[in-house]
Simulated scan of single mutants.
Amino acid sequence: MKLGSPGRWFDIPPSDRTSILPAFLILYAALYLAYGTQSAYLPAFLQSHGLAVEQIGLVLAAGTVIRIGAGPLTGRLADYLEARKQLLALAACLSSFIGLTYNLAFGFAALLVVSMLHAGATASLAPLSDALSVAAARERAFQYGWVRGAGSIAFIGGTLASGQLIDRFGLSSIILTSSVFFLIMAICAATMRGPADGPHSAEAYDGGAIRALLGIAAYRRLLIIGFLVIGSHALNDTFAVIQWRRAGYDNLSISLMWSEAVVAEVIVFFLVGPWLIERLGVAGAAALSAGAALLRWSVMASTSEMSALIGAQALHGLTFALLHLAAMGIMARFVPDRLAATAQTIYGTGALGIASAIMTTASGYLYGMFGAQSFWAMAACCAIALPLTRRLKVP
């Protein structure tokens, strides 16, 4: 079964298409507007509320740890109760109201508590949204890439809007705006119509969900591939701008190259990705993603020439967005519906969260010792992942 194959869109009654798709578009737009509005300037906000630079790092790191644990726990609860939509609405509502308390908190202890609570509330939002939207796509309601691509566009919009908001209303405005978008997401999740839940199964309550998921060979390999390929982006996310500044590029050039990667991501989510998965399958798409990442980091390690960097940034659509689409397809094909939310949260906040934490920490040491040559280590991670993709074929 294809994940939201374009041709099957026309087999769905128009009333179903128009009633389901807009709700998911609003859901993803609200989620990523909330993220985009807040994420870039949150460190500056924390500093304005009395935190030193070292304390900001501790607060953000604590949030990462909480997300790694809270995401899978919430996903498992959603599957156990067979209440993914309800848990998503509750988590989004909590994200909104807890987020507002940032404006009331000053000093390390208070901001640490708020940050950890907010991280716990937001941890499952994207994976639970993916679990719902992949199920809807599997019912042939729409292309998953459409809603995820809309999220990427919304993130850009939120990031751009945040600067304007701060200039006019101050740093506290991003907290308020982000909380409003989380609340819109909660309302949308609570009222949206999606695929009907399946019948209750005793296997959903046997307490062996993790063992069951890890018993699925394709899912195990996906966790490893995601850890290596998506995790390899940590060095780029942390040090690419520093490297480009060292190479003498001005801020405009850097901004354009960074924006190019986001545009490539959106193009793959909307257009290229579904076409590639239709023709290559999920295994071929994952292999292409790992190979593109291997090429991308090899270029970054080898040269700082503008033309080469432009090409490397264009590969972001393949190295991130295509693998994300392949991952959704793999989970749609191999993971039982009763474990969908658990699988999404273990992959999205568990494996990828741990990968980000480990790779970001390692990147600091690697870049400090080897500079741009440290991208060879990221290329090696993708080379290790490449042969694993051959075992993802649909039986």
Results as ranks from 00 to 15, higher is better:
residue 155 F to Y: 11
residue 223 L to N: 14
residue 250 D to T: 00
residue 70 A to M: 14
residue 63 G to D: 05
residue 148 R to A: 02
residue 43 P to H: 09
residue 32 Y to N: 11
residue 4 G to H: 08
residue 49 H to E: 05
residue 55 Q to D: 00
residue 248 G to D: 08
residue 95 S to Q: 08
residue 227 F to P: 15
residue 283 A to P: 15
residue 184 I to D: 15
residue 171 L to G: 09
residue 32 Y to A: 04
residue 98 I to N: 09
residue 255 S to N: 12
residue 40 A to H: 06
residue 341 A to E: 12
residue 362 A to P: 14
residue 90 L to P: 05
residue 56 I to K: 13
residue 241 V to L: 07
residue 353 G to F: 00
residue 85 K to A: 05
residue 54 E to S: 14
residue 373 Q to W: 05
residue 49 H to K: 08
residue 332 A to T: 01
residue 144 Y to R: 11
residue 77 L to E: 09
residue 124 S to N: 04
residue 36 G to F: 02
residue 268 V to Y: 07
residue 106 F to S: 13
residue 378 M to P: 14
residue 297 W to R: 11
residue 289 S to P: 10
residue 390 R to A: 03
residue 84 R to E: 04
residue 26 I to R: 03
residue 145 G to D: 06
residue 243 Q to S: 11
residue 282 V to E: 12
residue 294 L to H: 00
residue 194 G to F: 00
residue 274 P to V: 01
residue 108 F to M: 09
residue 384 I to W: 04
residue 268 V to D: 15
residue 391 R to E: 05
residue 136 A to K: 02
residue 118 H to S: 04
residue 257 M to C: 08
residue 116 M to S: 08
residue 379 A to D: 13
residue 323 L to E: 14
residue 309 L to V: 14
residue 96 S to T: 02
residue 88 L to D: 10
residue 323 L to K: 12
residue 206 D to R: 14
residue 219 Y to K: 03
residue 82 E to G: 08
residue 229 V to E: 13
residue 194 G to L: 01
residue 320 F to L: 07
residue 178 S to R: 09
residue 32 Y to C: 05
residue 350 G to D: 10
residue 163 G to E: 03
residue 313 Q to C: 04
residue 214 L to H: 11
residue 392 L to W: 03
residue 385 A to M: 02
residue 357 A to K: 15
residue 140 R to A: 04
residue 170 G to S: 05
residue 270 F to T: 09
residue 194 G to Q: 01
residue 27 L to Y: 14
residue 301 A to C: 10
residue 171 L to Q: 10
residue 268 V to W: 06
residue 127 P to V: 00
residue 110 A to F: 01
residue 363 S to Q: 05
residue 154 A to Q: 02
residue 320 F to K: 10
residue 102 Y to T: 08
residue 47 Q to D: 04
residue 190 A to L: 11
residue 100 L to N: 10
residue 327 A to I: 01
residue 112 L to Q: 09
residue 83 A to T: 03
residue 171 L to E: 04
residue 126 A to E: 00
residue 40 A to I: 02
residue 329 G to M: 08
residue 40 A to R: 13
residue 48 S to V: 03
residue 23 A to F: 07
